[in-house]
Amino acid sequence: MYELLYKKVSETISITDEEFEFCKTLFIPKKLRKRQYLLQEGDVNKHTAFVSKGLLRSYTIDDKGTEHILQFAFEGWWMGDLYSFLTEEPSMFNMEALEDCELLLITKPSWELLLDKVPAFEKYFRILIQNNLIATQKRLMGTLSETAEQKYTNLINNFPGCLNRVPQHMIASYLGITRETLSRIRGNIAARK
C-alpha cells in the first residue's frame, strides 16, 4: 500500500524508517472505483491524493457543458486542487477515477503535522510544488504557442502510457482540440512513419 509512496519520497529526500512509519499513520487509505469521484466541483478539496494504483483526471465544465481536462494523474503522481486545499475555498474542478484506484489521502491538518514533525517533507513538498509550477508554466506556454501536433507529440513523448489508458476524446480535451483534429493529427503522424 505504501511501497510506491516510500519509493517516490526516497527519490527526493532522505527519511528514516521511523519517520516513514509516522508518515503512514497520517495517510487515509482509499480505494476508488472507476468513474467514482474523489472531488466534485463546489466542494472544498479536503485531501491531497497520492496515486498508488490507477489513474485519475481533473476537469472543469464550461457554461456550454464542455469538459476541459486539466490534469491526469498516473501511479506515483499527486492529485489535488492546491488552491482549494490551502485556502479551504470551494474547488472549480472535478476529480474522477478513470480506472479502479488505490489512493493515499492526506488532509491539511495531517499534512501540516507531517511538515512540522518531519522537516524533510518540507523539502519534498517544496520540490513537488516547484515541479508542478514548472509543468503548469510549460502547459500554459504550450497552449499559447504550440501547434496541435506539437502538443500531441509532447504528450506522447512525456507520457507514453497515456495512449493506452486514456480515451481519445479525453486526450483531445486535455490538448484543447477537437476529436476530429486529434484523429487527423494521428493520421498524419502514421502516414509519415
Partner: peptide, 15 residues
C-alpha cells in the same frame, strides 16, 4: 519517539 496526531479544524462537519 512520541508522535502526535492531527488536530482537525471546526468546519469539517458542515463541509
Amino acid at each position: 519517539a512520541q508522535w502526535s496526531q492531527p488536530a482537525y479544524s471546526g468546519n469539517f462537519v458542515s463541509q
